[in-house]
Design a protein around this nucleic acid. Structure first.
Lengths: 174, 174
DNA sequence: CCACTAAAGTTGAACTGTCAACTATTGAAC
DNA sequence: GTTCAATAGTTGACAGTTCAACTTTAGTGG
């Protein structure tokens, strides 16, 4: 007990360098993609993510809870976001027949068109800033590493494993 | 021009899988670290980052602009954040002598104590969720990949290269 | 059928970050 | 030395997120 304060497994010099590089790279990539997307289309990252999830779902619709978990979002956050989408005419809510507590978030044609217009640009940016700078080997390695990390995070106590697995095993791309 | 709409270099199936895994892993890791840190110490991720940058700087102080760029933050955001820190007694502002427009953000003893208490837990979590699940080879590979990506992002038109490089070459760990 | 717990979703308040406008000071041109 | 653009930093309004409280409906056990 007395040594507990020194039991911390501090990071080595190399580990610190990796951790810093990880933070810088992931933060800059996220910021860059978000800025470009927003500048070109007015969509935020999370807007885009929500529209993608809806567009890939059967009937371009999803229950609120399902959409929330697939987009790693809280119910509250989603509810507010869908309200904003409704105001812009991109999504409409529909009463769920089976479960009268439930609501569908339905992507409108207009919403789909917005996503369709944004997608090429966003994909191009992902390619340019993530895939182009890396060799095929590195891409494969990165994929393996990320899957390992995600699996580990899902398995850890406190994580919402069900949510995360649903995300991982989400619908196949169009 | 007519084919421009098809000139988009869409992602292959494998690339999509890597991209999804990347998003899930990075988002889950960030969320997990932020939640744990906040639950245990009441600090947000960006709170922690600011305190770390101050603690590692000479005299535990930094000019506002320098602190903003090292923490990948805007001046405005930083100004608000420092005001909140001041209210909690963790940081104080000091007038800069050389440049009377300028202000120092100075970490107080109380602020340093907060960071000192939080650091072991946070480092332990970084180790547990990032380093432990990976082999030494994978860690090295991840480091190389992140440095490549960060370098690339710094060199691209539109990026704030100066800011990012300063971050990369930031002060050596204590 | 009744009670009770859980789940689906919404809402409003508080908080954080962003944006544009603003003040004050510096450095440079002339 | 005056003018002017650039830099340092702050501020207030606004937008998105979180949190806790709430309503409504489902399921479950007696």
């Amino acid at each position: 007990m007395a040594e507990q304060q020194d039991a911390t497994r501090w990071l080595t010099r190399d580990e610190q360098a990796v951790w810093r590089a990880y933070l810088v790279a992931t933060n800059m990539l996220a910021a860059r993609l978000a800025d470009d997307l927003e500048a070109a289309t007015g969509l935020t990252n999370s807007d885009y993510e929500l529209l993608v999830q809806l567009s890939e779902s059967e009937g371009r619709r999803l229950r609120m809870t399902a959409l929330a978990s697939r987009s790693l979002s809280s119910k509250s956050r989603l509810s507010h976001a869908v309200s904003r989408f409704e105001a812009r005419g991109w999504v409409r809510r529909e009463q769920c027949e089976d479960d009268r507590r439930g609501a569908w978030a339905v992507l409108t044609d207009e919403g789909f068109a917005v996503l369709e217009a944004a997608a090429p640009l966003h994909v191009e940016n992902v390619r340019r800033h993530l895939f182009d700078p890396l060799s095929a080997t590195e891409v494969a390695e990165l994929g393996r590493i990320c899957r390992t990390l995600a699996d580990h995070l899902c398995g850890v106590e406190g994580a919402d494993a069900e949510t995360a697995l649903r995300v991982m095993g989400g619908p196949a791309p169009a």
